[in-house]
């Protein structure tokens, strides 16, 4: 049955629709992350500096994915207009997220970007976020930078143009000591560097905009990734179901859907997908035949006092009932 028909009957949204909604979420998130609210209630933009730096940072994991050995981690070639748009939006989404956590300008932005580039280039325990492999350490750094951005923005709103200021003990209590000697400030910045307008920012509204924007972008990236995988699975499913129904069922039995991505069936055009399916089916059938042959050739007897692990495996293997094999003289299926 056609995938569209199946989903419509189940009252579900198609993977293509989900992909579109996810892309729209990223777009809306990008709009919100690009805005800040001034103290007079008007809106102004956050500028292009951090967006450009975010794009550079978003490019790095993509380059790593390109040179990655794993076929599943490699970016897929978009074969439809929707897939092409999704790829573009994926890159834009990562750019928005990176620009959303970086401070918007000045030397601090370069320091943060340098740290992110170093962290991203290190090998570590990796996870997958939105289809891009990012280590847990990178996520922590991103969270720290987001906190730093909010903190310095808050400081700027308070007209405190330093990340940290503290009174010098004793000196601060002496009225004749110059004010510049009474306070030590670390991490000075200017309003222009951080894009804070002269009249100040409406802090809570601005933070709310950025928080919702980040949530939309991160949520959209996650959804886009899942919908993208589902879209590709639908394409594989449709190709398989061009076979006669009995064959299609058999192919799906030996090539389970949750392995399609790992098996490199995603990101292929129709011709490549058919070839890959045929190749994989042959490999799996040959493996099955070899297993049956080995099974029928004889199994060792198990002693009473064998370890539990041996007994478990023995029971599983003995529960298998192989089909009758044709005569082994046929050599056409023995070669991979």
């Amino acid at each position: 049955m056609n995938v569209h028909v199946e989903r419509e009957e189940a009252g579900e949204r198609s993977s293509a629709d989900q992909l579109l909604v996810a892309c729209a979420m990223i777009g809306v998130g990008g709009i919100l992350l690009g805005l800040q609210r001034q103290a007079d209630g008007n809106f102004c933009g956050t500028g292009f500096a951090s967006l450009g730096m975010g794009a550079v940072i978003a490019l790095l994991p993509m380059l790593f994915a390109l040179v990655s050995g794993s076929s599943a981690a490699k970016p897929m070639l978009p074969h439809t207009r929707l897939a092409a748009l999704s790829s573009l939006v994926g890159f834009a989404g990562l750019t928005f997220v990176a620009s959303g956590v970086l401070v918007p300008g000045g030397p601090w932005m370069f320091i943060e970007a340098l740290i992110l580039l170093l962290v991203l280039s290190r090998r570590g325990r990796e996870g997958e976020i939105a289809g891009v492999r990012i280590s847990h350490g990178t996520v922590i750094w991103l969270a720290l930078f987001l906190f730093a951005r909010l903190w310095v923005t808050y400081q700027g709103v308070q007209n405190e143009w330093a990340a940290v200021s503290f009174d010098v003990p004793l000196l601060s209590s002496l009225p004749w000591v110059p004010a510049s000697m009474q306070v030590v400030s670390l991490g000075d910045f200017t309003a222009a560097e951080f894009g804070i307008p002269a009249q100040g920012l409406h802090f809570s509204h601005t933070v709310a905009l950025w928080a919702v924007g980040l949530a939309f972008c991160v949520g959209g990236l996650w959804w886009r990734h899942r919908a993208g995988v589902e879209c590709e699975n639908d394409r594989v499913h449709e190709t398989i179901h061009r076979l006669p129904p009995a064959y299609a069922s058999l192919v799906e039995l030996i090539l389970p859907e949750d392995e399609w991505r790992e098996l490199g069936l995603h990101g292929l055009n129709e011709r490549q997908r058919r070839k890959r399916l045929a190749q994989l089916t042959q490999e799996r059938v040959v493996r099955q035949v070899e297993f049956n042959r080995a099974f029928l050739a004889g199994r060792p007897a198990i002693d009473e006092g064998s370890p539990a692990f041996v007994n478990d495996i023995h029971q599983v293997i003995e529960s298998y009932s192989p089909p009758a094999l044709p005569a082994p003289s046929t050599s056409d299926v023995s070669k991979p």
């Binding site: 777009g27 990008g30 709009i31 690009g34 008007n42 933009g45 967006l51 834009a92 002269a198």
Partner: peptide, 13 residues
Amino acid sequence: ALLAAGWVRTIEP
């Protein structure tokens, strides 16, 4: 939406 996300960044204070 993507174009708007770029455009909003140009809004001057």
